[in-house]
Write a protein that binds this DNA or RNA. Structure first.
Lengths: 234, 234
DNA sequence: CGGCAAGCTGAACGATCATTCATTCAACTG
DNA sequence: CAGTTGAATGAATGATCGTTCAGCTTGCCG
């Protein structure tokens, strides 16, 4: 489950497959507990119990509690890095790619909502060097979005804005679903959030040409969705 | 400094003015230390030392360490609630108000950058009931932004979008300056961030009428700024 | 079968703090 | 000035964990 990560952290145990399995067992428990109670108020005892292993075992697969946090956070960031390109696979139209990327990002964030908040809460608890691993993972994920935007600019669908900054508008939009869920859920569903949010973000960028294309895209999608899963009215 | 807050927390000491003074002394130290090292890794010893008081004294003004955190977070949120209306005072043109509000928000966030990150890190460490105090403070602050947006819609300058969601685009834009400063500072200054960000956000909302007004507003501002503080080129 | 190694266990250790409270200090009050 | 009260102090207490390690189990090999 946490592919990238593990190399960075030493284990007492030799068998790589076992390390993989045990760590994902530990991390799954840790993410759940850290998300709910926070890193510092969760004890290794609790992680061990929830993972169904002994305390001592954990220390055969990580060096200390900080390692568990790093693995937990990397597992979250890895899920972004996996899901977005997966959703994008086979889609070639630039505007559609942009749409799909944001949609996918919001949905991974939603599926790991608590864990996303955990990442915001706890990244700073990591020692500098490890924090950089997290930051790099975020930068890599952003690159998927940035590439979509650049592509749209290249095709004359978006105006020529600062891509780095625009990327962050998109990224924070996706993250905000988790960070502000406590409030947003009071007046919006995920579907609505994505729908209206994308409309907002695209409106900021579309050229007249892009706008025309967006309209037809939207019409098609609505037509396709109409029979299957009607979206709630505002 | 922390006006709203204190009522919620009992102190051993009677003299209200003294409570005020001592608490802001403690809170100032706490915000600094919590921001740098995090809540759980900062000890009351350290807060006491930095505040220049004894450990025991702290416990005369708060009930426990959690209280210190609550006061610290409220002091941050209070600064938003104070600065934004202050900047807005005397400005009546709807579009300008919108601009000023975002500008002011970004600048408070910048001036309390570390503390803003602290709020994101640590709000969840508060017990439910206290967390609600923070959430309410955030909602109140959002209302300043929401009101600006509504006003622009009313005047036909913005299209008729979901105000709650649009508000969050603006709010997260301001917060992102603190949350993503580690990255954004590599390619943008605060001035640029505000400038281009506002352009992005407004582009998403402006009607043709609004767009015309925005252009003249922008021209005026650039002319006014040209002599004084030239903005860096992208 | 005997012995060895790899995995695994959890009681016990030691360190770290939040919190308390006996005591000191300073300022009024009558 | 003696007495009283409100503030302030910081050493001592007690509880809570992270981490270790002596020993247990399991299964493999000669």
């Amino acid at each position: 489950m946490t592919e990238t990560a593990d190399l960075a952290i030493k284990s007492q145990v030799a068998d790589a497959a076992l390390v993989q399995r045990r760590r994902s067992q530990i991390v799954a428990a840790a993410v759940e507990l850290f998300s709910e109670h926070g890193f510092y108020t969760t004890t290794i005892q609790e992680v061990a119990r929830k993972a169904g292993v002994s305390i001592g075992l954990i220390y055969q697969y990580v060096h200390d509690k900080d390692d568990v946090l790093l693995l937990a956070l990397l597992s979250v960031l890895d899920s972004y890095k996996r899901e977005i390109p997966a959703a994008l696979a086979g889609v070639s139209d630039p505007l559609t790619r942009c749409w799909v990327a944001v949609d996918a990002y919001c949905r991974v964030v939603d599926s790991r909502r608590e864990a996303t908040v955990l990442a915001y809460r706890s990244t700073k608890s990591l020692p500098e060097a490890r924090r950089d691993l997290i930051k790099n993972a975020e930068i890599e994920t952003n690159e998927f979005i940035a590439e979509c935007l650049r592509d749209c600019v290249r095709h004359g669908l978006f105006r020529d804005v600062n891509i780095e900054l625009a990327t962050y508008h998109f990224v924070t939009f996706a993250h905000a679903w988790a960070l502000k869920y406590w409030r947003i859920r009071e007046f919006s569903t995920l579907e609505q959030y994505i729908d209206e949010g994308l409309d907002f973000l695209l409106s900021a960028l579309l050229t007249p040409k892009g706008r025309r294309q967006y309209r037809t895209l939207r019409a098609h999608r609505n037509a396709a969705n109409a029979g299957a899963a009607p979206r709630p009215e505002r």
